[in-house]
Nucleic acid binder design. Structure first.
Length: 118
DNA sequence: GGCATGATTGTTCAG
DNA sequence: CTGAACAATCATGCC
């Protein structure tokens, strides 16, 4: 048994009790942050978005979203494997990203160019 | 050292 | 453009 520590405390992360009270988030604009790695779900949806729409051409965001999640859990470990694999690779990518972020984080300065954005 | 948290990622669909 | 359900994640901070 996986010791439930957090889970028992909170529902998970989103929890979104009812309307997704996630207000403080989304920074990505000027702030530079070592973004995180994608989730297996991301890859899973990329491949499945096709299927979901194929079997639910009528389904909209609501249906597809729910169906997607439902199918995801329905898949077997082996089925998710390929997705997890991709996620694993993305993780490495995010790792390097953070690495660079951590490296220049102090230094440089300057520069930065920044960019900006938009 | 282990725990909790937050931040992020991508899809679809619409006004 | 952005948000919202859907799910994972997992890196980091913190004592």
């Amino acid at each position: 048994m996986p010791k439930e520590t957090t889970k028992a405390t909170k529902k998970r992360t989103s929890a979104k009790a009812e309307k997704a009270p996630r207000g403080a988030k989304k920074a990505a604009k000027g702030a530079k942050g070592p973004k995180r790695a994608l989730s297996a779900y991301m890859f899973f949806s990329q491949d499945w978005r096709d299927r979901i729409k194929a079997e639910n051409p009528d389904a909209g965001f609501g249906e597809i979203g729910k169906l997607l999640g439902a199918k995801w859990k329905e898949l077997d470990d082996e089925e998710k494997k390929p997705y997890l694999d991709q996620a694993a690779k993305d993780k490495a990518r995010a790792e390097a990203e953070k690495n660079d972020f951590d490296d220049k984080k102090g230094g440089s300065g300057s520069g930065d160019g920044d960019d900006d954005d938009d």
